[in-house]
């Protein structure tokens, strides 16, 4: 049975009708019209579906939609404002952190979360991004992008 689920998506209140146990990934993609978050494996292995839920990094293919009830959900669509990319997005663009782009939304969300909470990954960027598979880059340019994002943020004096 479908039920109403209300949450904040990138700062805006949304209410969707979805089966409570349906993965949040499909609730976002099919019901909330937020297709920036990608399917990669449906088994929590690839991280393409990574979003931030109440300040926690989650794989939305493993989270039941009902868990979003009353929660704050952040996805790739919420990062850039009208005129400006988020520092992590800008850095991925400049440094070659995105190639085919399918892992990019999830990878960038993991990157943003890491910059907000570096203490949660004592091993630094490689540990923070360990749950996000990229098949194109070999990760080198993604690491460069993360360094560059830190520079942009500190130059602008803004928080991730």
């Amino acid at each position: 049975m479908k039920q109403s689920i209300s949450f904040t998506l990138n700062g805006k209140s949304v209410t969707i009708e979805a089966h409570p146990m349906q993965p949040l990934l499909y609730a976002l993609r099919d019901d909330a019209d937020a297709v920036g978050t990608k399917y990669g494996c449906g088994e929590g292995e690839c991280g393409a579906c990574t979003v931030i839920l109440n300040d926690e990094l989650v794989m939305s293919c493993l989270v039941p939609a009902v868990q979003a009830e009353g929660a704050r959900v952040e996805t790739i669509e919420g990062l850039a404002d009208a005129n400006e990319l988020h520092a992590v997005q800008q850095a991925f663009l400049e440094s070659g952190g995105a190639q085919c782009g399918i892992c990019t939304p999830g990878m960038i969300m993991a990157g943003v979360h890491h910059l907000r909470h570096p203490e949660r990954a004592p091993g630094g960027v490689p540990e923070a991004l360990e749950g996000n598979l990229c098949r194109c880059t070999g990760y080198t340019r993604i690491f460069t992008a993360m360094k560059r994002a830190k520079e942009i943020l500190s130059a602008n004096g803004t928080a991730p």
Binding site: G36, T37, L85, Q89, A98, C100, G101, P105
Partner: peptide, 9 residues
């Protein structure tokens, strides 16, 4: 096409 890719568009 980089901006489209980093913004999820």
């Amino acid at each position: 096409e980089g901006i489209d890719k980093v913004t999820g568009r």
